[in-house]
């Protein structure tokens, strides 16, 4: 209860939560509001029309309704972000737990591999994977997941090391508790909060990076109503047709802002160093 009150006092974090919830709600209702025709079928003779009562956000370069596309785009954005984060957590957390808990050469190897992945420019890895398994959102997701797990691994590693060196774990081992039990019951809860914080910020970060990948033609493929792709496709029509870039841009801005503010707020709640200072 206390923690909730504390959270509610944090205005930006609440704002972030509101934004995230709205985007999620939008993603749920979007297919009910925007028909597939409005999203995919354009009228070429009505292309690049400014915002009006018919087309609230105007039309894009193929005469499609931008409002409908921005709304439906939220589904893709959330789906990508969620998949990437889940993939990264699925790789990073077990790897971090293993490396942090044991002290074998295997642990060292995991951390060296983590270093290697941290040093690869995300963009180039994404490109290489896109070459391998074909261009599209899937390869962008795999690529981002593969570049994002080291962050989780590092976080979990550090936290596990900390818990590992505490007396109570030694004691547990001494009384014969199994390793898996120690990991699951005692270590995992301790690493959960930093992982959740990382994951929340990672959601926003992923949406942003996917947009950059779309800009380079590696991410979403046409005719998907992807925000980043919409900006990349429409930037050629600036400044006359400003709406085609601006509304998807605002959608990205709002969503990323929401996740980041929420993540920051959560971090303040769980980070003991910052907690003290409040």
């Amino acid at each position: 209860m206390l923690i909730l009150i504390k959270f509610l006092r944090d205005v930006p974090a609440v704002l972030g939560a509101v934004i995230v919830l709205s985007v999620a709600a939008l993603a749920v209702v979007a297919p009910l509001v925007a028909s597939p025709e409005a999203v995919f079928d354009g009228n070429l003779l009505e292309r690049l029309q400014p915002p009006s009562s018919v087309h609230l956000f105007g039309t894009d370069n193929l005469g499609r309704d931008i409002c409908a596309r921005v709304m439906v785009g939220s589904r893709g954005a959330l789906l990508v972000a969620l998949s990437v984060v889940v993939l990264a957590v699925a790789i990073g957390v077990p790897a971090g737990l293993y490396a942090g808990y044991t002290t074998s050469w295997g642990s060292e190897l995991v951390m060296r591999i983590t270093d290697v992945f941290l040093a690869v420019p995300q963009l180039i890895l994404a490109l290489a994977i896109a070459q391998l398994i074909g261009k599209g959102l899937e390869s962008a997701m795999v690529a981002l997941g593969l570049t994002y797990w080291p962050f989780f691994c590092r976080t979990v590693y550090a936290e596990t090391r900390r818990v590992r060196s505490t007396l109570f774990v030694d004691a547990l081992e001494g009384i014969g508790a199994s390793r898996s039990r120690i990991l699951m019951v005692h270590v995992l809860p301790n690493v959960a909060s930093p992982v959740i914080v990382r994951a929340t910020i990672g959601m926003g970060f992923t949406i942003l990076t996917t947009a950059v990948l779309g800009f380079l033609g590696i991410g979403a493929t046409p005719p998907m109503p992807d925000w980043g792709l919409a900006i990349a496709e429409s930037r050629e029509y600036l400044p006359d047709s400003w709406w085609a870039v601006t509304f998807p841009g605002l959608a990205i801005l709002a969503t990323v802002l929401g996740f980041n503010l929420l993540g920051d707020g959560l971090r303040d709640l769980v980070d003991p160093r910052l907690r003290r200072s409040r």
Binding site: F40, D41, G42, L44, N61, L62, P222, P223, E233, E236
Partner: peptide, 12 residues
């Protein structure tokens, strides 16, 4: 960009 546009016109 035009190759994408042509493909999308056909796709529609």
């Amino acid at each position: 960009a035009q190759t994408t546009q042509a493909a999308q016109v056909l796709q529609q």
